[in-house]
Design a protein around this nucleic acid. Structure first.
Length: 433
RNA sequence: GGAGGGGUGCCCGAGUGGUUAAAGGGGACGGGCUGUAAACCCGUUGGCUAUGCCUACGUUGGUUCGAAUCCAACCCCCUCCA
């Protein structure tokens, strides 16, 4: 898109020699930037003083997972470089549903679900941002505050007339559905308009001049910028990041147990650490830049390691990333547990532990049940399959008999029984009482 | 509103009366090789109180010794027409 730049910014500094503002400099150095609507203009604005920027998060799940981490990190960088982040909760837009990047419409969530999800998501941000009333303190707002009260006809007349269906149909999110002959409801079709309106509303309310997001949000962001110009004559900016995939092309954020949640109640710091530890070789440098705050020189040194040495870099990545999400202490503990478990083959104390009344053990506790209780298998059937397949171990000794029972004799000197599925998944059973 | 097509396991998709817990693929997981990597090879992939039982092919009923497969009604989706 072409934009007329204001006269003041005509000698755009970013054109030659890269951006001058700390904010854009940092984003570039660490590999966050994919596209920007007007980088020179944004650079100039960021150089002049604190700017306010936002990213929207829809409340479709009870917490955020690593798929959103990139966005969260951008807000963090924004704050660290002296600007004000707005976390926009999509209490209103979640009622509509973003068609971007989805083959088919999502189930409609109830108001109660949305409210519950929002509450869960809220807590995640406190780890990454500093909230408050100061000029660079983060704030959280909910677009339900303005979207729910919109009146249809006035909205159509004020906002709807600035959108042509012709253009809306060219949007990736819409086109994809049409081409694949997948249904796109009118409800979802409106999503981009609402998101565009959000940007305008945030500009009006808080002087927000920048919206960031994943590259799939580009169209929606640009719509907001256009709308603001037409409605308010305001000059706003958009910046997107590449959608994050691993070097082998898989979407990020999946693990054996499901999504890689940022909430410790939904995924333990131990598992979170493990997720990062298992990063592919080819991703280590990139992830260190994006998801840790180590100095770039240090990262350069780490990613230059070759072969098995690169594992050192992965451990650093895991510990730093975990420290940011769950605190330094939890991260160190996970690292230490991993060291003992994987490098010494011992039963690291920090492994996920379930307690079991000693009486149960004396009766003989079924092996299948034990694996399920320890969270290593979803059902007895799955536990059975792993035993048959040779992937199940008790105290590091393979077990082949699915009818076996655990007894007090299985308790090691450390006072626990170590169960393993595969080489990576371990848990402890601790007799009590 | 009319006509036609369709709803199958995590996803895609085959199956049109019995040998179907349902081909094939993807994903995921386990084993091997390694470095708790990638690639590759092999295997597994509904549940259970398990030589058997239960649940499952949009929903509910029906036909039949027997149904994902046939019939009826309903719900939802797509395409074309109005």
């Amino acid at each position: 898109m072409s934009k007329t730049r204001s006269a003041a910014a005509s000698a755009g500094p970013a054109r030659r020699g890269g951006p001058k503002s700390d904010f854009l400099k940092v984003l570039h150095e660490r590999g966050y930037v994919h596209q920007c609507t007007d980088e020179a203009g944004l650079d100039a604005a960021a150089l002049k003083g604190p700017i306010t920027a936002y990213i929207g998060f829809d409340c479709t799940a009870p917490s955020l997972h690593v798929g959103s981490l990139l966005a969260i990190m951008m807000l963090r960088k924004l704050q660290q470089t002296g600007h004000k982040p707005i976390v926009l909760m999509g209490g209103g837009t979640t009622r509509v549903g973003d068609p971007s990047g989805k083959d088919e419409s999502r189930r409609l969530l109830s108001d109660e679900e949305i409210a519950a999800n929002m509450a869960g998501i809220r807590t995640v941000f406190e780890r990454f941002l500093t909230f408050g009333d100061g000029p660079t303190d983060a704030v959280m707002v909910d677009n339900a505050d303005w979207l729910l009260d919109l009146r249809y006809i006035p909205f159509l007349r004020d906002v709807g007339r600035h959108f042509t269906v012709n253009r809306m149909l060219t949007f990736e999110s819409v086109r994809l559905r049409l081409e694949r002959e997948q249904p796109l409801s009118f409800l979802e079709f409106n999503y981009m308009i609402l998101q565009a309106y959000d940007f305008v509303e945030l500009w009006r309310r808080m002087g927000c001049v920048l919206q960031m997001g994943g590259s799939d949000q580009w169209g929606n962001i640009v719509s907001g910028i256009d709308l603001a110009r037409r409605l308010e004559g305001a000059e706003l900016y958009g910046l997107t990041t590449s959608l994050l995939t691993t070097a082998s092309g898989a979407k990020m954020g999946k693990t054996a147990a499901g999504a890689v949640w940022l909430d410790p109640d939904m995924l333990s710091p131990w598992d979170y650490w493990q997720y990062w530890r298992n990063t592919e070789d080819a991703d280590v440098g990139r992830f260190l830049r994006l998801f840790t705050e180590l100095p770039l020189e240090e990262i350069a040194r780490l990613e230059a390691l070759e072969g098995a040495e690169l594992n050192e870099a992965k451990k650093v990545l895991a510990t730093e990333a975990t420290a940011m999400a769950h605190g330094r202490e939890a991260a160190e503990k996970a690292a230490e547990t991993a060291r003992r478990t994987f490098e010494q083959g011992a039963a690291g104390e920090g492994l996920p532990t379930v307690e079991l009344p000693r009486a149960e053990l004396e009766k003989g506790f079924g092996l299948l049940t034990a694996f399920v209780a320890a969270g290593l298998a979803k059902s007895n059937g799955e536990a059975r399959r792993h035993i048959k397949g040779g992937g199940a171990r008790v105290n590091d000794a393979p077990v082949r008999d699915e009818r076996a029972v655990l007894t007090p004799e299985d308790v090691t000197e450390a006072g626990v029984i170590k169960l393993s599925i595969g080489k990576k998944r371990h848990a402890l059973i601790r007799p009590i009482g």
